[in-house]
Design a binder for these strands. Structure first.
Lengths: 223, 223
DNA sequence: GATCGTTGGATTGTTGAACGATTCTACGAT
DNA sequence: ATCGTAGAATCGTTCAACAATCCAACGATC
């Protein structure tokens, strides 16, 4: 059965536009393509060896994910998140993640473990000063929370929100030291959950959002 | 100021692909293009007088909105929502709308009125047996709830969820008589809110989702 | 009679070129 | 220094072409 699923994954081969979009997404998220940069159709298409039409399809996919912004007759640009964007993102996260976390007592043990495990990993990575991996584990923690809701649509949209947020982190130059503050916070949330104090855990998550949002907005507006 | 806003709206002229997508979206939502139908690039492009490339752009937009599904080398089809789709949609709605409704005491009066007004309208329309308008007002009610969260990203995504849900309603042939049952329910929710019983209103909303989901899933699986 | 290749036609995936429309840039006039 | 204008660069859209893929019909085999 797992081999069949594997085979199906192979069957669903990506289109050229999809592959180009995946490559560009990486470049945007690791900062190689800086926020605000304009992506010329001719230049990028030439460099990647794809036609303009195919490249435009890839641009559209990334625009859907809010990593690029499209301006009519001007081209596409790497999104440069503003303070307002961050506020909007956290308003959405508050509703989604706090709402999902409230379902803690109704979900399967596997779903709960998908929330706990990333925190253990983040703690371990943080002790080794590997903040890149710690940051990835932190995202897995929040992805796990969203998945408590049991909706693939909600999970997919949240992944887009997370990706957009990563852009904001980059602009705020907050990639490394940010998690140093908040890893302990996540740990406390999991402790409360294991204690059966779901409501208190939700409160902590809300406070975490308050602090993270304010920190990020301040750094963005300072620029 | 309003004239300036008007001028700006004119400036943001829609691209051809956007206009084509809007037209197709209407056709899909009012059932002219039935769920499951395959949309031939050549046939539709010829009928609308746009090139294949432009039409494919429009298809991408509607695929993002989940009204169409794309199958590699096979074409695009009008989505035919399944019971699982509906369960997924309601799992997302539960988290989003209940989470947003919990913010009732923290939002502006204008935001609260955007929840109450559509219910009054739905009641009035229902008394005149105008179920189409009553249904539209019902959607405005739920849109108003989502907007309590204050996130445009969340509101936009919810609009897509609603559109997809309308497709499911159509497949279930539940366009007219559905709201007859649930308009009074919405009314009760607003009464509770006006009474300051936010928590009870959330419970009612949750029960509404339970009932609506089960009803819709049953009708879909029966086919 | 049912299952399995094969073949040909239809549709999609991708490319390249073309041209009008729009934006940007640089230069010169006031 | 500001404004307007001409020219270059880029985008929006269309068209034609060909390879890759899918599909339906037809026989071949057991």
């Amino acid at each position: 059965m797992s081999t069949l699923a594997q085979g199906k994954a192979d069957l669903e081969r990506a289109s050229t536009a999809q592959k180009v979009a995946d490559m560009l997404r990486e470049r945007v998220l690791d900062g190689e393509l800086a926020p605000g940069l304009r992506l010329s159709e001719e230049a990028i298409g030439g460099a990647l060896g794809v036609s303009r039409n195919t490249l435009r399809e890839a641009f559209r996919l990334l625009t859907r994910d809010r990593l690029l912004v499209h301006e009519h007759s001007r081209g596409v640009f790497v999104r440069r998140p503003t303070g307002d964007d961050v506020r909007d993102l956290y308003a959405a996260r508050r509703v989604i993640e706090c709402g999902a976390l409230r379902l803690w007592d109704t979900v399967t043990e596997a779903q709960r473990e998908a929330v706990r495990a990333p925190v253990r990993q983040a703690v371990a990575r943080a002790e080794k000063n590997d903040w890149t991996k710690a940051g990835q584990a932190n995202i897995q923690f929040h992805r796990g929370i969203v998945r408590l809701a049991g909706s693939t649509r909600l999970s997919d949209e949240s992944d887009r929100l997370f990706a957009e947020l990563m852009l904001a982190f980059r602009v705020a130059q907050e990639i490394n030291d940010f998690y140093q503050t908040y890893v302990p916070w996540n740990r406390r949330i999991v402790e409360l959950l294991n204690n059966g104090q779901v409501s208190e855990a939700v409160d902590q998550l809300n406070e975490y959002f308050d602090a993270a949002e304010e920190d990020l907005v301040n750094r963005l507006d300072a620029q």
